[in-house]
Design a protein around this nucleic acid. Structure first.
Length: 284
DNA sequence: AGCCAGGGTCTGC
DNA sequence: GCAGACCATGGC
């Protein structure tokens, strides 16, 4: 399903499952992507994006018929298809927009949003850092954390640290990343992951409730952070993280709760609602 | 200055 | 079980 041209990888998409890079990479589910033309307030569809995932630094562009991943071998196709959730067909989800007018409007407005399947330990830590924080600062803290103790990938790029690299550090060691009260929580996550007490990779194969209870034994992980970790980092798409934005959105848009048919993939619907409510805020 | 940001912990009832 | 104080930091 892919072709290479000049060492670049083309991940093909279609009209049923389109991908919007700005909507997918800049909607608060991942924190390591930035538009290269970042002098503008809001990213554009034709921006080139640079970021780190799967232990590699890459640049991406939207193109007619898919996403171009520059300087990337064809063997990485399965990883990137999985990362952009392209092995899942969203058609049954979008179909529910035909039964609910508001849902249909939200899906249309968010066309191209994909749920990103991210590394579980990185996702747990990223959303620990997200607590009572804003997205630009979350990105800054994560960037400084990677530079502090993440593997040097090359150039100016550093991977997200492993639990082992983190768990030998102290709160004082983490002072330079300016994570505030969250530093001790990051270390608790690293310690529990390194000891096997909470295996981030095992969360995927557990039941959603079981995984939720387990990940919440990490300090700094409550219901909302747990849902984000399970949704973005462990494939539990029924999780529905309730942050301040979603709470406000649900009060005005769905006071009776989500339509029942959407509940099995509520997490994906949640991303569309999050995008919808934040765009309303930006216009006003 | 005060409020808010993709919340959670801890205490006290 | 549930409200309220508190938590670091930075932008507006």
């Amino acid at each position: 399903m892919t072709t290479t041209e000049n060492g670049h990888l083309l991940i093909k998409t279609d009209g049923q499952n389109p991908v919007s890079l700005p909507k997918t990479l800049d909607c608060g589910q991942a924190f390591r992507w930035r538009p290269l033309a970042n002098d503008r307030w809001r990213p554009l569809a034709n921006d080139r994006w640079r970021g780190i995932a799967g232990g590699r630094a890459v640049e991406l562009e939207e193109t007619a018929g898919g996403i171009v991943i520059f300087d990337t071998p064809q063997e990485e196709t399965p990883f990137w298809r999985g990362y952009f959730d392209l092995d899942r067909d969203y058609t049954p989800i979008f179909k529910l927009g035909g039964e609910n007018e508001l849902l249909g409007e939200i899906f249309a407005a968010g066309r191209g949003i994909r749920l990103l399947n991210q590394a579980p330990f990185e996702t747990i830590c990223s959303f620990i850092i997200s607590a009572n924080n804003n997205i630009p600062r979350i990105k800054g803290i994560i960037e400084r954390l990677c530079r502090l103790c993440g593997r040097h990938i090359g150039g100016d790029d550093y991977d997200f640290p492993t639990p082992e690299a983190l768990c030998s550090l102290t709160v004082e060691d983490l002072a330079p990343i300016r994570a505030g009260f969250r530093a001790k929580y990051i270390l608790d996550a690293a310690r529990k992951a390194a000891s096997g007490e909470v295996s981030p990779e095992a969360l995927r194969s557990m039941s959603t409730e079981e995984a939720r209870q387990l990940v919440m034994t990490i300090k700094g992980v409550g219901p909302k952070v747990a849902d984000c970790a399970l949704l973005f980092g462990a494939g539990h798409i029924s999780c529905f993280p309730r942050d301040v934005w979603i709470k406000r959105a649900m009060e005005t848009l769905f006071p009776e709760g989500l339509p029942e048919k959407t509940l099995p993939f509520a997490g994906i619907v949640q991303q569309y609602i999050f995008d919808y409510i934040r765009n309303l805020k930006n216009i006003n």
